[in-house]
Design a protein around this nucleic acid. Structure first.
Length: 631
DNA sequence: CTTAGGG
DNA sequence: CCCTAAG
């Protein structure tokens, strides 16, 4: 081990460049422990040894070009690998390029030193961190791309475009305001970046630094849907970041240690092998660190985002820094997180994830379930506590080039989503996402309803219809009409209330509307007039006022009516009074059932059986002639 | 998009 | 109601 000096750092940097160029590249990093106050403390010998071991073990790991610098003010006792130049007294490990676990660029100095730039920091845990669904994926991809470019020696700025994906989120927007790197960039930048919206998020975190406590609290509220009295900026920033990145899990509940351990175990086994990408290594590294130093420090899923940011920076050429890990503040954060998670709206991620997944699937790329599981597991473990976060996890993986897909995690949600109304739903969700936050939920709901079109119709219809129904009811039948109408209204209200459920739910089912007697009557009349199977016509002509009844609904209802008529008839034959048996249930008047039966017999069969009908020529009218009496 | 049919 | 397959 060597102690890095600024000069060393320079050298290292050069080396890094070489590395990028493809030449050999030793990786140099320093191990540092970050104290709660953000100060860096030299690692103990033991720690160093452990790291060394780790490195040795990891020789086969894919090289990671840059790992974030470790600079987290946030972290409490975190060990980081930092560039040598950064600190004079820190021990630094030098590994051969093969290992490349971490590369650091001297350039980072500027960035790294800035505590504020959280985004820059690359948590060792990056892998875990992939919380952002598409964003993350994009980011990662973007990063990777960037990296490649960099390697190619292009320095195109990869500045971050905060705006792209971020627009939806405040934080993101905020992030935009603050450029991560001095040199590199402003918030918006190179075209390259544009392609990768995800970064913006990361940046956003950075931006958070500029926010006042109050603003941070507001952002927090927006992010988690609840208010916070916390005045700790760091905490707030962290939280918000987590919320945005979905990385929260990491912090989650108190048992960070466990998580870490678990995580790192998984990571070790699976991650490294899976991806050759730097990220993987990073994770591995992180894992190692965790093992060595203890879980407490690491935790972040968000790191991924950071990582990305780093990449960007790097790409911009400024960074190269070292990985940094962030720690979350301890208990409080964890505490909050738990809450945050709950509040957090899953939708975005889900959506993103879903979209990502779909993309992947379509691509056919992924699908390596075998691999996937591993990742997922890892993620899960890390995140452990908050299950709700799954999406984030899944997202992360799916996002990955390699096709990580966190199938296991995603699957459930995805399957659900998918099943329902694929595109529409997704879109709607997306919209929701855009809105973000609490409000988002409502928005989402509204959007959903709006999208459905039917729902809107329903509402309107309900309004319109209800009166009619009432009149009908008076007619004598007990119709659920009123109730239905009411339900409809309520349903809408409910939906809004439960943004999430609705959103998801909306996808699944449209509000259930019991068929009123009047509706049944109309249906029967329609069938009599237009014939069985002319559902679209019946719907148009007879159900113009019931927008919520689709042709399919009519068809289904007809089917049920037929069945009912048959059964009912049977029962009657038996001498059982249907009504008595099921008074509460629909009181379908026998008259109607009878009619249904007749129609059913006549029309449909007409075709089939029908030789009889055929003769008559006029099929529709024949109905009356049903008597043709095939029976 | 509309139908049919299975779930 | 939902979902999907067919035309």
């Amino acid at each position: 081990m060597e102690v890095g000096t600024l000069q060393d750092a320079q050298e290292i940097k050069n080396e890094d460049n070489d590395f990028e160029n493809g030449s050999s590249d030793p990786v140099v990093y320093q191990l540092v422990r970050v104290e709660g106050d953000g100060t860096l403390v030299p690692p103990t010998e033991d720690e160093v040894l452990q790291i060394e071991q780790f490195l040795d073990e990891k020789v086969d790991l894919p090289s990671i070009e840059d790992v974030g610098h470790v600079e987290d003010f946030f972290t409490n006792d975190c060990m980081f690998l930092t560039k040598p130049d950064f600190e004079e007294g820190y021990s630094e490990l030098e590994t051969t390029g093969e290992i490349h676990t971490l590369q650091f660029d001297a350039d980072l100095e500027e960035d790294r030193l800035k505590p504020l730039d959280v985004s820059l920091d690359l948590p060792l845990n990056c892998i875990v961190g992939h919380d952002h669904g598409q964003d993350k994926l994009n980011t990662e991809r973007g990063d990777s791309n960037i990296v490649h470019q960099d390697n190619a020696s292009t320095e195109t700025t990869k500045s971050t475009v905060l705006n792209d994906s971020c627009s939806a989120e405040k934080e993101k927007a905020d992030a935009c305001s603050r450029p991560v790197n001095n040199s590199s960039t402003g918030p918006s930048v190179s075209g390259v970046t544009s392609s990768v919206p995800d970064f913006s998020i990361l940046r956003g975190e950075v931006c958070l630094d500029n926010l006042t406590i109050r603003e941070l609290q507001e952002a927090f509220r927006a992010t988690f849907g609840r208010q916070t009295n916390v005045k700790d900026k760091l905490w707030l920033k962290r939280r918000i970041t987590m919320g945005l990145t979905n990385s929260c899990d990491v912090q989650s509940s108190g048992c960070v240690v466990k998580d870490y351990k678990i995580v790192h175990d998984d990571a070790k086994h699976e991650l490294p092998a899976i991806e050759g990408i730097p990220k993987v290594e990073v994770e591995a590294t992180s894992l190692v660190w965790n093992q060595v130093f203890g879980p407490g420090n690491e935790r972040d899923a968000p790191s991924c985002s950071y990582y990305q940011s780093e990449d960007q920076q790097r790409s911009s050429k400024r960074l190269k820094g070292p990985s940094a890990e962030k720690d979350e503040t301890e208990g409080t954060l964890q505490y909050e997180q738990g809450t945050a998670k709950r509040l957090r709206k899953p939708t975005k991620r889900y959506i993103e994830q879903l979209s990502d997944i779909e993309t992947c699937d379509s691509t056919g790329k992924l699908s390596s379930p075998g691999k996937m599981p591993a990742h997922d597991e890892v993620l899960l473990r890390q995140r452990v506590a908050p299950f709700e976060e799954f999406d984030s996890l899944s997202i992360t993986y799916p996002t990955r080039r390699d096709t990580f897909g966190g199938f296991s995690v995603h699957v459930p949600y995805v399957s659900r989503m998918r099943r329902g109304r694929p595109r529409r739903n997704l879109l709607s969700f997306l919209d929701d996402d855009a809105s973000m936050e609490c409000t988002e939920v409502q928005m989402a709901v509204e959007v959903m309803s709006g999208k459905d079109g039917e729902q809107e119709n329903h509402v309107n219809k309900a309004m319109e219809v209800s009166p009619m129904k009432n009149a009908e009811k008076k007619g004598g039948l007990i119709e659920t009409t009123d109730d239905d109408e009411v339900q409809t209204v309520q349903g809408n209200g409910v939906c809004r209330t439960d943004a999430k459920p609705k959103t998801q739910g909306s996808l699944k089912r449209k509000h259930h509307r019991a068929w009123t007697l009047s509706e049944v009557q109309k249906l029967v009349d329609g069938v009599a007039r237009f014939g069985v199977g002319k559902w679209s016509e019946i719907r148009r002509l007879s159900f113009s006022s019931y927008s919520y009844r689709t042709s399919v609904d009519l068809k289904d209802k007809w089917r049920n009516l037929i069945r009912a008529s048959q059964t009912q008839l049977v029962l009657e034959k038996d001498g059982v009074c249907p009504r008595k048996s099921n008074p509460s249930i629909i009181p379908i008047p026998p008259s109607i059932l009878l009619r249904v039966k007749e129609l059913a017999e006549l029309q449909p069969p007409a075709g089939n059986l029908a030789a009889p009908i055929k003769f008559p020529g006029p099929g529709s009218k024949v109905a009356q002639g049903r008597g043709s009496g095939f029976l």
